[in-house]
Amino acid sequence: MNEDFVISVRDLYVNFWISGTGVNSFKDAVMLFGRQRALQKKQVLKGLNLDIKKGECFALMGKNGSGKSTLLRTLAGIITPEKGSIQIRGTVAPLLAIGAGLEHELSGYDNIRIMGTLIGLRGKELKESVQTIKNFSELSHDDLSMQIKRYSAGMMARLAFSISVCRIPDILIVDEALSVGDQGFQEKCAHRINEMKAAGTTIIYVSHSLTELKRICTRGACLENGRIAKIGPIDEVGMFYEQSFQ
């Protein structure tokens, strides 16, 4: 692996294993046990190659269903690839769906501790992060003591985002997560991403908004049907992506 690259993907294949629905699939699985697989295979990523340099801000584009989210999840270690290799240097913080995993019956503080543990914070680091998250989210002590089911959508997003970005990772993966919160908070998010960028974090950014991608990223790729159709400077890839709709 080249020293400059933090992510190297070679010949990556990812399959979905899908169980059919309804009586028939269950019956088939039982009746044909051993003769036919109960799960149907669907290839989502088909031999993908990708290198991302350290400190780079990389844009990922593509139509719905082209495999962007699957690629992000595979890079984050959530999906195990069928074939091929992925080499990743450093810690990965995925920002895939804002608010996922928050427990609505519990307080903001409880959720910070739970989500913090899940994303890998322990002991002293976890304790310190509570204050960081409190400051960043601008939620008051009263807000955080309250069960989060009483939060507004914006407050929920503030809490979730603040937990996800409370420490600076080596690689940040963002899946259209920033269109939440009020304008002030959106600016704050953009500012935090710039901070991370300055600190040397590599960012992979998925969005359908070309202006947003152009503002943040320098290089990008466009996915089509599980393969990379175009990779290069952001302007070229952006043009390619726009043309694919004409």
Partner: peptide
């Protein structure tokens, strides 16, 4: 029950 966590965090 933990689908949303399983789909967003590598654990």
């Amino acid at each position: 029950n933990n689908a949303s966590i399983i789909k967003t965090i590598a654990l």
